[in-house]
């Protein structure tokens, strides 16, 4: 490599690193309205997936088609992932004028997290047919589907 080219590489690399740090490593991400919509849509889709996983895991265990440790692991991982979905969304700065929408989404994700947490608790206790838990999962699934459709 020639000296001039080596100098150029040495100059460009730190500049790229600094640019990446400046644009991508802020403590709080501040997406524009469209980007926030994309994040919100992704959060709803991820939450739907976790709730459906918990529901199917409980249903499979209720029909005695899966053993308890497997069911517990599956539902516990869904609970953990849902927590990550909530955390990731809460770190986004809400665009101006979208506070109500953000609060509704936050409440919906909270409801989903509570339903999956209850499902995990039931799974640990070996209660796979608790109607209250299953109904809560079904209810929140419906709301998540409405949110995705809207």
């Amino acid at each position: 490599m020639s000296t001039a080219r080596r100098t150029a590489v040495v100059a460009v690399l730190p500049a790229l690193v600094l640019a990446a740090l400046a644009t991508g490593c802020g403590l709080v991400a501040q997406p524009d309205s469209t980007a926030w919509d994309d994040h919100a849509e992704q959060a709803v889709s991820d939450a739907t997936s976790e709730v459906a996983t918990a529901r199917l895991a409980l249903e499979t265990a209720r029909r005695e088609r899966a053993w308890s440790s497997y069911t517990v692991v599956l539902v516990a991982q869904a609970e953990e992932s849902l927590g990550t979905v909530q955390d990731d969304l809460s770190r986004l700065q809400v665009p101006p004028g979208r506070d109500d929408e953000a609060a509704r989404l936050d409440a919906l994700l909270d409801e989903a997290a509570t339903a999956v947490e209850d499902a995990r608790s039931s799974a640990v206790e070996g209660r796979y047919d608790d109607r209250r838990v299953l109904d809560a999962l079904d209810r929140v699934t419906g709301r998540l589907e409405d949110a995705a459709g809207g």
Binding site: S49, L56, E64, L74
Partner: peptide, 30 residues
């Protein structure tokens, strides 16, 4: 057949096995 209609995205190894549990039960899962 099992996960796509329910909107389940695969993120864990347990989810990979879930269709087999649904279809074949505990022996299939094992």
């Amino acid at each position: 057949v099992v996960l796509m209609p329910q909107g389940i995205a695969v993120e864990t190894l347990g989810q990979v096995a879930l269709p087999v549990a649904v279809a074949l039960g505990k022996v299939g899962l094992a």
